[in-house]
């Protein structure tokens, strides 16, 4: 089985040169903006900015195509779900009804509903470029240092680093265990009956889980032998100092957040309403 995952893509661009910590802060701020607001103008601005920065990072669309596929399917289903469960949500939010298409029951299509669902979709799209960028332009080694830099306890930051370190390892052991068990006579092809296949899947999952439990012990020992966690602080081999561009990016993101919050308070609602 092929497990498709995003991973670091090495390029020499200004976005790659930014420190992980700055990118992380920006990503968090933009996520907060997107979560809190329904202001179409801000969301559209974020989406455009995201695409521009994406171009700057020189990441090719085909390198992330599989993710986009997932996202589109997900958004489609989500939109369908919203419409099935709450076809008049838009009208109740914006307070007006402009019917575009008469349908039975409460399923008439309104302009408000379309606008509302457009906003919901935009909320996802507005952050996606940043999330993608953060992952594909930040070297995993720098990731933990960045988390620690923005105030996360270094132990938790290191847990994240261990996760990134062991995903490929676990993938490899999954593959290897599958092979070893097949070599001993387990058949994973579809020729077998369903309940037997379940039992046989267990013959792979259980060693995978138990062997990693062993690994937790072994790795803790190795870390303990090299004095992890003995001090209040820890330095990072792969940390980089903030540069001008990092400060600029963070400042810009903060400004946008303030603007967005100010607009919401000023309006008294997080929904931007073009209908009245």
């Amino acid at each position: 089985m092929k497990m498709q995952m995003l991973s670091y893509i090495e390029r020499a661009t200004p976005i790659h040169r930014m420190t992980g910590a700055a990118k992380l802060v920006c990503f968090i701020i933009w996520s907060v903006i997107a979560m809190t607001t329904f202001d179409t103008r801000i969301l559209v601005f974020m989406l455009i900015a995201g695409i521009v920065i994406f171009r700057m990072a020189n990441v090719h669309l085909r390198e992330i195509a599989f993710v986009l596929g997932f996202i589109l399917i997900f958004l489609l289903l989500n939109n369908l779900g919203i419409y099935i469960f709450a076809p008049q949500q838009g009208s109740s939010i914006y307070g007006t009804v402009h019917i575009l298409l008469h349908l039975p029951g409460s399923y008439s299509l309104t302009l408000e509903q379309l606008f509302y669902q457009l906003n919901v979709t935009l909320k996802y799209f507005a952050v996606i470029p940043f999330a993608l960028l953060f992952i594909v332009t930040t070297h995993p080694s720098e990731f933990a240092a960045s988390l620690n830099r923005i105030g996360v306890s270094y132990r938790i930051a290191y847990a994240v680093s261990i996760t990134l370190r062991y995903i490929p390892d676990v993938q490899r052991s999954y593959h290897e265990i599958t092979q070893a068990q097949q070599a001993r006579g387990i058949d994973l092809s579809k020729k077998e009956k369903l309940w037997r296949r379940m039992r046989q899947a267990a013959a792979i999952i259980i060693p995978l889980v138990f062997s990693t439990l062993d690994r937790i012990e072994v790795i803790s020992n190795a870390m303990e032998l090299r004095r992890f966690g003995m001090k209040k602080k820890r330095t990072w081999y792969d940390e980089r100092p903030f540069a001008c561009i990092d400060y600029l990016a963070v400042a810009f993101s903060m400004l946008l957040l303030i603007l967005s919050l100010w607009l919401s308070f000023h309006r008294g609602s997080r929904y931007y309403n073009p209908f009245n």
């Binding site: 089985m1 132990r155 994240v160 062991y166 369903l194 999952i205 937790i216 966690g229």
Partner: peptide, 30 residues
């Protein structure tokens, strides 16, 4: 700092790695 011992940190890190891998593996419910 017993609430976050080395073992807990490692268990969290490696555990999360498996958690992520297992999302890709599915077993049919009969």
């Amino acid at each position: 700092k017993d609430w976050l011992s080395i073992r807990t940190v490692v268990a969290a890190g490696i555990g999360a790695a498996i958690f992520i891998i297992l999302r890709y593996i599915s077993i049919p419910v009969g």
